[in-house]
Design a protein around this nucleic acid. Sequence first.
DNA 1: CATCAAATCACCCGAAAGAATGAGTGGGAT
DNA 2: ATCCCACTCATTCTTTCGGGTGATTTGATG
Lengths: 143, 143
Amino acid sequence: MVIVKRTIFLYGLALAILVIIMRMIEYRFLVRDLTLEFYIGLVAMFFTGLGVWVGLRFTRKKVVIINPEFRFNEKEQTERGISKRELEVLELMAKGMANQEIADQLFVSLNTVKTHSSNLFSKLEVNRRTQAVQKAKKLNLIP
Amino acid sequence: MVIVKRTIFLYGLALAILVIIMRMIEYRFLVRDLTLEFYIGLVAMFFTGLGVWVGLRFTRKKVVIINPEFRFNEKEQTERGISKRELEVLELMAKGMANQEIADQLFVSLNTVKTHSSNLFSKLEVNRRTQAVQKAKKLNLIP
DNA sequence: CATCAAATCACCCGAAAGAATGAGTGGGAT
DNA sequence: ATCCCACTCATTCTTTCGGGTGATTTGATG
């Protein structure tokens, strides 16, 4: 998981930078009394945001809700060679999301989403997202 | 959103407690040199965790139910002022047809179809055909 | 170790979709 | 007769899609 390593690295880097900034601010404002709370508040806010991002970034397993009688057709998926990622894209596509929105949701680039959807279309033998959603529903790949 | 308020409250509380703890530690260890980095590291870790938790907490799904048998919702149609022609376009749209195909099917021009779909989108409060189809199904305007 | 599939991202380009605006026509209602 | 409205179509412009191609990285598999 190089991406994990990279994230940890970035995390450490952010921490280091923050410490430096704090140090710089410290020498100028330590005389005042609000410093500690102020620092902590800043750090807390920043890392809360970071935490949210990290949390979402590595939590792609989501609980999607379904209509009562839906049985996922694993056979179709394997026979057509549809990957999990492609399925994820398909699901978001079925929600009416644009490629860019899907990209944001999955934390990947627009181009990646395009690649996935393109492969998906050929595997589903369609050439439009609306048709893909339709066919996927018919094949019980999505609820 | 009472749950959001509570979370904000807890957030503030955590912040306050942290400040207090920091203060307490401060008076005992400020003499040493590791303090600032140490503090920041602690705060950062804590709030990163909190951020992850918050991020996950509010990213869980909502339930959508799909309807087995179809009863056309006339009320929605009239309330939203959707015309018959717009409905026709909507139905063909739901079949995954492109605007040009719809135009050919209805013996009108491409521009006309675009106009209809545009009006349809605003009446359905969406801005993409996929979303329109979705919403129309939810509103029982199409099966 | 070599190989393969999955996932990621990039670049190009043409086609389709959508937003905004304006406008002409015909059928009902008043 | 006049007014309203659905329907029709056009033009312009911007954004999004989708096809095609190629590249890198990583995990798994043999």
